[in-house]
Design a binder for these strands. Structure first.
Length: 471
RNA sequence: GCGGGUUUAGCUCAGCUGGUUAGAGCGCCUGGUUGUGGUCCAGGAGGUCGUGGGUUCAAAUCCCAUAAUCCGCCCCA
């Protein structure tokens, strides 16, 4: 038997301490901003019933679900049954649970389940999701999403709120150039109708349209034709969508967006016009929050997930092919769980996408995992070491004890080594013990001072670190 | 799902057209004698060359397969 691989499964990662700090840095900021917008936290299980998950994301999404194989008899029974019937066992017989694919569907389930939730449930949720996808840049099989959603209202104020939340997060993280692309599902439908494309082909048309900025007009036309949409209809579709987005690609902000919407409004039917009006209203609301200057009307934006019904969003930055996040309105999803219809809108930030871009641009502040003080000792009894460490910790210091007997030089260089990086070394020997003190050395400057144990606390260390160098 | 790159020491990588004990830098360990690291000097440990086949007298090197990973495309967070 060969040795097992020590790598984590494909598309999944171990997070070493420095990585955890970076992730935590971002997550904590996201939490603060979401909470400042009045969202409350929710956590749901990693595993959901397949009946909850299936049929919400479209065929492609269903394919990407991780399913949990039945165990023991529950697995054996369908296998036997299939074997007896001389057929392969069906996926549906072998599993009825799977790992969650996103955080929106679990939210919808929760909203359908608990009647006691506030009428306007504003929840945020930061948890991993799983997709059996091919890994790529900024794309993993296990990744965190940071969702904010508001259920219970059709008011566009809610849409504006979730946009404000994510825009604030990105700004506070230090992103400057990002766009919140916005479109409307009903507008897309209307445009497709206006182009004379069969409703049945709406889905395929949307997929092609979504690629406009990647493969260009000719590419979309070719793809549309390939999918059975007449080139005349394809051209009509592009005539509505393309000139506007191509002509003003550089930066349609709220003001230009209004212009663009007016042009679109003139070309669609009444339902389409209502969608345009909604976008118009969203723009005017967001003009007064941090999202406003990042909103960009994109009539070619489609998005994959099946459940969107109204405005749809996607966040893009110049140097990443994919998106940093996305969202939209999904007024029918909660209703799919039976009981009552509950409208909802939400936005999801992809934690790893944000981290990838931040790492590339070196946007992280200095984050240190190391202890405040490494307790180095020599020639004293170990119980004394433990006692001093305990005392220092009680005074609010993060203290690590050098675990072995070793030369002082060894201990000091370890304290300052990569991956350890204690800010200070505390030297405990006979002299210090007798004096009830500790020789404290600031490792980056080399400055050191003998300080009585009773005076040692974070403030005292700070003072030592900031002392002007004495030469 | 498609195309391309990469895979050699803990890390970053060299190893040309196949030829004896596979190298460097960094890191690590030991020492340069007493309680002062980040500089220097001297030593040292550490690799079944991703995995499995094949060609050959001989393979890290050539061929095939497979896996992991990265970069484009598709799709998505």
């Amino acid at each position: 038997m060969s040795k097992p691989s020590t790598k984590p499964p494909s598309g999944m990662r171990d997070f070493l301490p420095t990585e955890v700090l970076r992730r935590r840095h971002v997550i904590e900021l996201v939490q603060r901003v979401y909470e400042a917008h009045g969202f409350v936290p929710l956590e749901t299980p990693s595993i959901e019933n397949l009946s909850t998950l299936l049929g919400k994301y479209g065929d492609e999404g269903d394919q990407l679900l991780y399913r949990l194989l039945h165990r023991r008899e529950a697995l054996q029974r369908p296998l036997d049954r299939a074997h007896a019937a001389g057929r392969p066992a069906l996926e549906a017989e072998l599993a009825d649970q799977g790992l969650r694919y996103d955080l929106t569907v679990p939210l919808a389930r929760v909203v359908a389940q608990y009647g006691e939730l506030p009428r306007f449930f504003k929840r945020y949720q930061i948890q991993p999701v799983w997709r059996a996808d091919r890994p790529g840049k900024g794309r993993f099989r296990e990744f965190y999403q940071c969702d904010v959603d508001i259920t219970g209202t059709r008011s566009l104020l809610a849409d504006a709120e979730v946009c404000s939340a994510v825009a604030t997060v990105l700004e506070q993280l230090g992103f400057e150039q990002f766009a919140i692309r916005v479109n409307h599902r009903e507008l897309l439908r209307a445009v497709i109708r206006a182009a004379g494309i069969d409703e049945a082909l709406e889905g395929t048309a949307l997929v092609a349209v979504d690629k406009l900025d990647k493969i260009g007009e000719d590419g979309v036309l070719a793809e549309l034709e390939q999918r059975g949409i007449a080139s005349a209809a394809g051209r009509a579709l592009l005539a509505i969508i393309a000139p506007t987005s191509a002509g003003e690609r550089a930066g349609e902000r709220a003001s230009d967006g209004a212009q663009l919407l007016a042009t679109l409004r003139a070309q669609v039917d009444e339902r389409g016009q209502r969608a345009v009006d909604e976008l118009q209203e969203l723009l005017s609301l967001c003009a007064h929050n941090p999202a406003g200057q990042h909103l960009e009307v994109r009539p070619d934006l489609a998005r994959g997930l099946g459940y969107y019904t109204g405005p749809i969003f996607e966040i893009t930055v110049p140097d990443l092919a994919g998106s940093l996040g996305g969202g939209g309105r999904y007024d029918d999803l909660v209703g799919m769980f039976g009981k009552k219809q509950v409208p909802a809108v939400g936005f999801s930030l992809g934690l790893e996408r944000i981290l990838v871009v931040m790492a590339e641009r070196e946007m992280f502040p200095a984050l240190s995992a190391g202890p405040d003080l490494m307790l180095c000792w020599l020639g004293v009894a170990q119980p004394e070491v433990v006692r001093v460490a305990t005392q220092l910790r009680a005074r609010g210091l993060k203290v690590e004890v050098f675990p072995e007997q070793a030369k002082l030089g060894k201990q000091l260089s370890y304290a300052d080594a990569e991956g350890v990086k204690a800010a200070f070394a505390g030297i405990l020997g006979d002299a210090e013990l007798a004096a009830g003190a500790l020789t404290v050395k600031h490792l980056s400057s080399g400055r050191q001072q003998k300080i009585p144990l009773a005076e040692l606390d974070p403030a005292r260390l700070d003072a030592l670190a900031q002392d002007p160098p004495t030469t």
